[in-house]
């Protein structure tokens, strides 16, 4: 398993192996699941209370389906770990964080100096998501 390089959570990391979305519904003791780009994140919504880790795989950084999967889970109230795995580069970290990812396990380790800069790049944000950033329109109008 690829190492988790960045984690924005205080709880203990989940060591369970992640099962596929297809298998997850039947494995009632599973707490970790892995979403591939073609999977429907909404298939997991009936099981959210027992999920502690969702890995979202990015086989290629250009395939952006995982961003929608992450937001859908957070919008449905999922509070467990949401980990981006695979072809995750420093230039995608900010957007991923905004979509709800709070752990990153890139297949190629990232330069810590670069990651620090990536999270500090944007002074404000234009859009509201489920993260705690206040969108610019709210700053303007309260």
């Amino acid at each position: 398993m690829v190492e988790v390089q960045l984690r924005f959570r205080d709880d203990d990391a989940v060591a369970d192996p992640a099962v596929t979305v297809d298998a997850f519904g039947d494995q009632t003791n599973a707490a970790a699941v892995r979403i591939e780009p073609g999977d429907d994140a909404r298939d997991l919504l009936p099981h959210l209370e027992r999920i502690r880790l969702v890995e979202v795989n990015f086989p290629s950084f250009g395939d952006g389906r995982g961003y929608s999967a992450a937001r859908i889970l957070r919008e449905a109230g999922y509070t467990g770990e949401l980990r981006a795995v695979g072809d995750v580069a420093v230039d995608q970290l900010h957007a991923m964080r905004r979509c709800g990812f709070d752990a990153f396990a890139p297949e190629h380790p990232l330069d810590p100096a670069h990651t620090e800069r990536a999270f500090a790049t944007w002074p404000e944000v234009y859009q509201a998501t489920t993260d705690d950033r206040t969108p610019i329109w709210k700053l303007r109008h309260g």
Binding site: F61, G62, D63, G64, Y67, S68, R71, Q92, H94, A95, M96, R98, C99, W122, V125, Y126, Q127, T129, I136, W137
Partner: peptide, 13 residues
């Protein structure tokens, strides 16, 4: 324009 600029979900369509 503002909504679509640096949209976190829609940068890799």
């Amino acid at each position: 324009r503002q909504w679509s600029s640096f949209h976190p979900e829609f940068s890799y369509l």
